[in-house]
Design a binder for these strands. Structure first.
Lengths: 363, 363
DNA sequence: AACGATTGTGTTAAGGATAACTATTTGTTC
DNA sequence: GAACAAATAGTTATCCTTAACACAATCGTT
């Protein structure tokens, strides 16, 4: 009707071909086209190949909006993360994105900036974008979950990763933090260390609580006492690591190793130790957690625990897609626990050369 | 017909309310609802408030799929990056995501993995997701642009960021790499350095070519000769930086400063210098490029150039949205050039204490 | 008093894909 | 050879929102 208002469009605008175009050209109905493209049984092989050929010729791209609208199911997945910086989340997102694309899905990314209100808004945004499912790693401040319950009441699959709702009947992919701490502390013990300190994180966060548990477990295994003055609670930053280390090393009975629940904190501790004239690992061994990128470029390189970021992303997508394809029929909550990997590096290697895993992640 | 197979759905599935529901309840037509919600002039204030109230009561969320299908314009933006790791791209994506959300758009992220074929696929995926516009940072291997021309021929706004198509009639947001290199080299000169070497990157990439130009420009300004043996071409990795530095420092006439076009390479150079017994910055000053996270935690911390990641993301979105809203009417190609910021740190600070900017980026 | 302008609302037809239901032809079975 | 099943393709309604067009009522104007 209305004359399309492009009076002069230098790069001549071409409209994408639709099923109707193909149908017209072949003199068949749109249904036939639709079925042929989705390999429906009711279309003969001859017609199928004709349609496919024409579709390729015109480089037909299905309009996913239309498809999603009709089917009530889009090819979009939503993902909510606290932020996309540092090592961990970009890597997980990378894993998610790769796996999702392989399955023909696109991913919409939202950041909560560690804020519940923002997280709520993200949920709304994703719902109104009609995503087929949501993956979320909770903001630190999230203690109420009404926005997430709403997702489920919509019948939308929801999978948590890394930071999950604890003890609830939810689908989740998490790391076995306790195991990682256990491996790391055991390693320090194996290096001959006997007074192992722990730089702990905020204990209301389960990941840090579990890392502390693993540390304690390893000491118990070895028949060593858990000494209160050897555990310092920090916010896991570099300065606090340095401060804690300073206190320990200037005390009458300093530790001979430190297991930190985070790499930044471990770094601070290491730098402070060296500043005070202690050698790492000779005088005091150090291990961290998270396999931050910088742990391979410090001097010495820092022993740490890898969190399997990519695998976590892949597992999350796999679980979510299963739920989406099951279409609400399976609701046995599933928790996937990934095994962390200890990466032994220079900061914890005693002179006693022994067969250990010195492999670092390839990139 | 087929009995919906959820025999027992514990979390009772509620269907989202649609305009039709609101219309029925108020006894008006859907059009009225639609108009009231989009604040159309033809709806009376009384009716408007009634509709708004009801919409809020039922927490009505518009179905963006349907809206986008009808309007031919979705609230989705596509973004194609080589990868989402390291410092730069996550930060830019972060900036993009934040700015886009503020404007009511969601962002779909794709990775090309530095591969043209993948990039082509990404474009297809975004087109079929019916995004309203695309932001792209080219893969290194991209030399043909048919897939991107297709985007424009669809009438879809396209904005490049960081890695753009050179010399073409395109919209782009880039960093002034030459300026950054100029600032950095000038700073080394101001520190009293007179034999400044350059760790250069692959010269077929414009960013590295421009950084080299800036270096040369600064030397010229200072009336210094550009010596061939003081420029080494590398792939910008840590080992190659170390190798180059080794060669320089074992030569008869070693440089007293190194400007590296990348931080990793600068790091390698710095480590090698120290290994050879040279002190940084006293014997040889060093500066890098990119403001990678690790540059603040090495010892000494590394002087570098910040690439304004967040601003780049914001500017990219702003430009793209302008194009989207202009709806094909403005096609004057626009190039936005961001000014880099020199971050002076320990690796280049001579004993001559002078008033310089020692600020590092806060996080 | 009649007319156009203004205001407020309804009708209807897209937009592209798809699923339920129908209809036709061919092949199979007893 | 009649009945029935399988194979193949078409009709039509639907997903939800929006926009062009139509329509009715109120108002001011000449």
């Amino acid at each position: 009707m209305s004359p399309r208002k492009k009076s002069e469009t230098p790069p001549a605008v071409t409209t994408p071909v639709s099923m109707a175009d193909l149908a017209r050209e072949l003199g068949v109905s749109m249904t036939t086209i639709s079925r042929a493209l989705s390999d429906h049984y009711s279309i003969g092989p001859e017609m199928k190949s004709k349609v496919l050929k024409l579709a390729k010729k015109y480089n037909y791209q299905p309009n996913r909006l239309a498809s999603a609208l009709r089917k009530g199911k889009s090819k979009l997945l939503g993902i909510i993360v606290p932020y996309i910086e540092g090592r961990f989340f970009p890597s997980v997102v990378h894993g998610i994105e790769t796996a999702a694309r392989k399955a023909g899905y696109n991913v919409i990314i939202c950041q909560s900036h560690e804020d519940v209100a923002q997280e709520r808004q993200n949920v709304e945004a994703l719902l109104s974008a009609q995503v087929a499912g949501i993956m979320v790693s909770l903001a630190r401040t999230t203690t109420q979950f009404t926005h997430l319950e709403k997702v489920q009441s919509r019948g939308l699959p929801l999978v948590f990763f890394d930071r999950s709702m604890e003890g609830e009947d939810v689908h989740a992919v998490v790391l076995d933090d306790q195991e990682g701490a256990l491996l790391s502390t055991r390693h320090l013990l194996a290096q001959g260390c006997r007074r192992i300190a722990h730089l702990a994180g905020p204990q209301h966060l389960s990941i840090y609580k579990n890392r502390c548990r693993g540390y304690v477990e390893a000491l118990r295994e070895a028949g060593l006492p858990v000494e209160e003055e050897l555990i310092t609670y920090t916010d896991m930053t570099q300065p606090e690591g340095a401060a804690a280390m300073h206190a320990w090393l200037t005390s009458p009975n300093p530790p001979d190793a430190v297991f930190s629940a985070g790499d930044y904190c471990a770094l601070g501790a290491m730098q402070e130790a060296e500043r005070l004239g202690f050698r790492v690992p000779d005088d005091v061994a150090i291990s961290g957690f998270s396999n931050e990128a910088f742990t391979t470029i410090t001097k010495p390189t820092i022993t740490t625990v890898d969190q399997r970021c990519e695998e976590m992303g892949q597992a999350t997508v796999r679980l979510l897609l299963e739920l989406i394809e099951a279409d609400g029929s399976t609701f046995a909550a599933r928790q996937i626990v990934l095994r962390p990997e200890l990466l032994v590096r220079e900061s914890s290697l005693g002179q006693v050369a022994e067969p250990v895993n010195t492999r670092t992640k390839k990139r």
